[in-house]
Amino acid sequence: MMSNKIKHHLTDDLLMAYAAGTLPEAFDLMVATHLTLCDHCRARAESFDAVGGCVLQEQDAAVSMNDGSLAATMAMIAQGAPVAKPVRPGCSVLPTPLQDYVGGDVNDIKWRSIGMGVKQAILPTTHEATARLLFIPAGAAVPDHSHNGMELTMVLQGAFSDEVDHFARGDVEIADEDLHHTPTADISEDCICLAVTDAPLKFNKLMPRLFQPFLRI
């Protein structure tokens, strides 16, 4: 599952915010999915966890637990561990965190066509940001668009190219207001991506703009 060929990584800002626990759920999902594939970023993320550990250690002892707190905790422990949800092993396309949101593997994704062969599946997260899976047929392009906010796109299967670079499995493209791009899937294989946005996309041609209400992005 892990890949050593990843060229495009997450930023320190995102990894620190993930460690601090302040990202919208959709962005957490992106980070967790990338970390499953990328030990380079996992090590960076865990070093930001270590900063959190230091902050916790620095908490002064002025706050104390209530009387009987330890006994109450021991009673809680005696009731047994909460039932752990079964761990999905991860398939060749969907890493474990995504399987939890799809409710299965790549065959269980509930695709909806958004035209020109492109399909998407919106994943159930909180509404501060949107996470969706995108299916781009081999050789096809996603309409030219720019962004109001931040958009992260990570390749899960196949690869795509745009004005910036070539992106393969595990690579993350980070796009902001300044980037107008037309991602085009490699001809060799259909491309599946995880895309996360914290604001709606702006399409730059009339036709795709009409699609936007259906896209819900």
């Binding site: 916790l56 908490q59 002064d60 706050v63 330890l70 905790t73």
Partner: peptide, 11 residues
């Protein structure tokens, strides 16, 4: 518990 629980609570 004595060491960490109050720190978690303060956090």
């Amino acid at each position: 518990f004595q060491h960490f629980a109050p720190r978690v609570k303060a956090f």
